[in-house]
Design a protein around this nucleic acid. Sequence first.
DNA 1: CGTACGATCTGCT
DNA 2: GCAGATCGTACGA
Length: 197
Amino acid sequence: MAGKIPLSYYQEEDVVFLARDLLGKILVTKIGNSITGGIITETEAYAGINDRASHAYGGRRTGRTEVMYNYGGMSYVYLCYGVHYLFNIVASKRETPHAVLVRGVYPVIGWETILCRRNMAIKSSKVSNGPGKLTKALGINLTHNGLTLDGDVIWLEDRGVIIKQGHILTSKRIGVAYAGDDAHLPYRFNLQFEKYI
DNA sequence: CGTACGATCTGCT
DNA sequence: GCAGATCGTACGA
């Protein structure tokens, strides 16, 4: 597959830079015979043991968070609110538990399959514009935790989409009010994408 | 072992 | 705009 992004890309130590750089990349899944993918439109950075919003804050290391301590370029999928799977990309080096939460994509591959998974009839920018929605749209679940993102199940492609800085909206992260001062960090990045379709 | 709660979405009002 | 769904994880006893 042309343009598949190598693992070295994710081993960037500046997870905030990586979160912003991931905008415009294509997230692709192959589940069975179904290939689906979307352009990444929204991300959040989680900066390891010093970030109170991170699952790895304070060096917390459990069965769930263990994969965050692995090398950059692995998937970290977990269940949120008992209902939704959330997809993260592990960043940086081994033992540095940085991660980027992918919060939204816009479908570019496999619209039919995506709409079917989402139980929707017509194309809409809302089909995968949320962290729980995109995992359902792309067929991602807990069995996809701990995969390397240069494999044949989940990978990212760089199709050379150019992102103008003026099209990126930076803001506070969502749903992390418990994180004290860290809740205000400008670690969320939105591609103002729907405006330009 | 028990319990509180969460990096959310949907449907109903 | 808001409440309910729904269950694994984390942590304290």
